[in-house]
């Protein structure tokens, strides 16, 4: 008879394991295979001008954030004010306008302000595919040599900044 009393425990563990596996799938936890590797090669136009091409070389030279955004992405709108704040504090932010409409994106920036020093227009999402973007927003950190240091999936806000990014900047100032 006593063995029956163990049944609830077993059922509970089955549920707990299930919940655990669900957490493991959380997109915010995605590690990137690209960390420690140079930013992949590409040749895409600037958002502001459809005849000026950019490549990976244009990104290196200073510690910079690379922010993947799009006008169709609601969360990007929420993230935007904080990027503005970072930019006004002298942090270099490069934008990747991901699977978007050029006109809409320019209008978006005119309305909300532009925190980006330069924006890569990735209409087809080919660069996004190379760096393994799973959605927007996403933010990468690259160093002077263009090596990817960190990746953040989801919104970048004050808390994430302090926890995951700010120490890279304080190191470089020392």
């Amino acid at each position: 008879m006593r063995i029956i009393l163990f049944a609830p425990l077993m059922v509970f563990f089955a549920i707990a394991i299930l919940l655990w596996s669900a957490l493991e799938r959380e997109p915010g936890k995605l590690p990137s295979a690209l960390i420690g590797k140079p930013f992949p090669e590409f040749s895409l136009t600037k958002l502001s001008a459809h005849n000026q091409y950019l490549s990976a070389e244009d990104l290196s030279g200073a510690l910079a954030l690379i922010n993947v955004w799009a006008t169709w992405c609601y969360a990007c709108k929420l993230e935007h004010p904080y990027l503005q704040k970072l930019a006004s504090n002298g942090i270099k932010i490069i934008g990747i306008n991901y699977k978007d409409n050029r006109k809409a994106a320019i209008a978006w920036l005119e309305r909300l302000g532009n925190p980006y020093s330069v924006i890569i227009f990735d209409e087809e999402g080919s660069l996004g595919l190379d760096i393994g973007v799973s959605g927007a927003p996403e933010t990468f950190l690259i160093d002077k040599q263009g090596i990817i240091l960190h990746r953040r999936v989801g919104i970048l806000d004050q808390k994430v900044w302090e926890k995951e990014f700010s120490h890279y900047y304080s190191d470089s100032w020392e």
Partner: peptide, 8 residues
Amino acid sequence: HDENYTPP
């Protein structure tokens, strides 16, 4: 719209 992210 998830507050913080595009739907999974």
